[in-house]
């Protein structure tokens, strides 16, 4: 065990870690930040996505030691400073972009990264970008809708427009 520190959601924190401790485990068990979820072992589901130095990564597929001193943002760090939901989080609620809530943290973290890279993504771009985040509840329709709405786009014709 070694003491490992990093900056999580703007605060420098530390906890014990082994070489084999995954970033997801460090966040969940080491720091008690249980908003980051683990839904698979093979890096596919994306429930564990967090930002490391501003970029989305799958925290169950990163060794905690490898992110020593990095800046990490988790779902717990995504709300506005006053605790209110961010525009993106609010759009997920407004458009029913979540059901059981388990994939939601990773989905929000990935969607936030998308909007950082591409402020007004098309439906196809959103669907493609979110390919590494599996949701079993929503059928993705309302997730796509939420991300489009968060970027200020009209969502009234989603699914309706003829091909």
């Amino acid at each position: 065990m070694t003491r490992l520190s990093m900056k999580v959601n703007g605060r420098t924190v530390s906890a014990e870690a082994e070489g084999r401790t995954l970033l997801s485990a460090f966040l969940r068990q080491g720091l008690g930040l249980t908003g980051t979820h683990v839904g698979c072992d093979t890096g596919q589901c994306g429930a564990c996505v967090v930002h490391v130095d501003g970029k989305p990564v799958k925290s169950c597929n990163v060794l905690a030691m490898d992110t020593a001193d990095a800046e990490v943002t988790t779902i717990e760090g995504m709300a506005n400073a006053d605790g209110s939901l961010s525009v993106l989080q609010q759009a997920f609620q407004d458009h029913h972009g979540l059901q059981c809530g388990f994939c939601t943290p990773g989905m929000v973290m990935s969607a936030a990264a998308l909007l950082e890279e591409n402020p007004t993504p098309s439906e196809a771009e959103i669907r493609h970008y979110l390919e590494g985040n599996i949701c079993r509840c929503t059928g993705y329709h309302n997730i796509v809708k939420a991300v489009m709405a968060a970027s200020g786009q009209d969502v009234s014709q989603l699914g309706v427009a003829a091909e």
Binding site: L33, G35, H37, M78, L85, Q89, Q93, G101, F102
Partner: peptide, 11 residues
Amino acid sequence: DIRFLTGNGRY
């Protein structure tokens, strides 16, 4: 949704 969207669900 508020708790789920902020990482405060209790699974």
